[in-house]
Amino acid sequence: MHPVLERTFGGLSREYYVRQFLFGLVIPAVIARVFIEHPTRLPFWMICLLVVNSLLYPYARFAFECAAGFLFGRMVVAVPLLVMLVVKAGIMALCWGDAIFIAPVTLACLYFLHSRGDPARWQTRYGSNAKGRA
């Protein structure tokens, strides 16, 4: 793989990317289900947007988790389960819907990180999601 592509798109660990990708598939599945139930056709531009946002969602989610980790640190907040699930669903929808705008910034940061620094510096609440140097 070309070094630029390896440093950007290959910047997240495979496990993290697959996990977030699978969670991100919930939103396009719901959208597709709505269009299947109704007699209207899904426009081609929307199919393209569903695919692009689904592929870029893990990078947008990584950016959100890095920002949240920076802002909140290791703070623990106790809230009811229903509230937490609604907030998590909202964050997922926000990250998925804006992935086309958030992911390019994340990809540029991953490229810079893998070109100049140590990937282990980028920590989220779940540990380092950036791949180490080979």
Rank of each mutant, 00 (worst) to 15 (best):
M1I: 15
M1F: 02
H2Q: 08
P3T: 05
P3D: 10
V4Q: 01
V4W: 08
L5M: 10
L5T: 15
R7D: 07
F9E: 02
F9N: 08
F9G: 07
F9V: 15
G10I: 14
G10N: 07
L12V: 12
L12C: 13
S13Q: 11
Y16N: 09
Y16D: 15
Y16V: 14
Y17M: 07
V18S: 02
F21A: 08
F21T: 09
L22Y: 12
L22N: 13
F23C: 10
F23D: 08
G24T: 14
V26K: 03
A29Q: 05
I31T: 04
R33A: 11
V34L: 02
V34S: 04
I36E: 14
E37F: 05
E37P: 06
H38E: 14
H38M: 00
H38Q: 10
P39H: 07
P39S: 10
P39W: 04
T40S: 07
R41F: 07
R41S: 14
R41W: 04
L42H: 01
P43T: 00
P43E: 13
F44S: 07
W45P: 10
W45M: 10
I47C: 15
I47G: 10
I47Q: 10
L49I: 08
L49W: 15
L50N: 05
V51F: 05
V51T: 11
V52G: 05
N53T: 03
N53R: 02
S54H: 02
S54W: 04
S54Q: 02
L56T: 13
Y57C: 06
Y59N: 02
Y59D: 00
R61C: 08
R61E: 02
F62N: 01
A63S: 14
A63T: 09
F64Q: 08
E65L: 11
E65C: 12
A67Y: 03
A68F: 13
G69W: 13
G69T: 00
F70N: 09
L71I: 09
L71D: 00
R74S: 09
M75H: 03
M75L: 05
M75Q: 03
V76P: 00
A78L: 09
V79C: 07
V79Y: 06
V79L: 14
P80D: 01
P80W: 01
P80A: 04
L81K: 05
L81Y: 01
L81Q: 04
L81P: 03
L81M: 02
L82A: 15
V83I: 14
L85R: 13
V86L: 12
V86P: 00
V87N: 07
K88M: 06
A89N: 04
A93M: 14
C95V: 07
W96C: 01
D98R: 05
A99W: 09
I100F: 06
I102K: 04
I102Y: 03
A103G: 03
V105M: 08
V105E: 15
T106G: 00
L107V: 13
L107N: 05
L107C: 11
A108C: 05
C109I: 04
L110Q: 00
L110R: 00
S115Y: 12
A120D: 03
Q123S: 12
Q123V: 00
T124N: 09
R125G: 10
Y126H: 02
G127D: 13
G127P: 04
S128I: 06
S128K: 06
N129G: 14
N129A: 15
N129H: 11
A130K: 01
K131A: 11
R133N: 06
R133Y: 06
A134H: 06
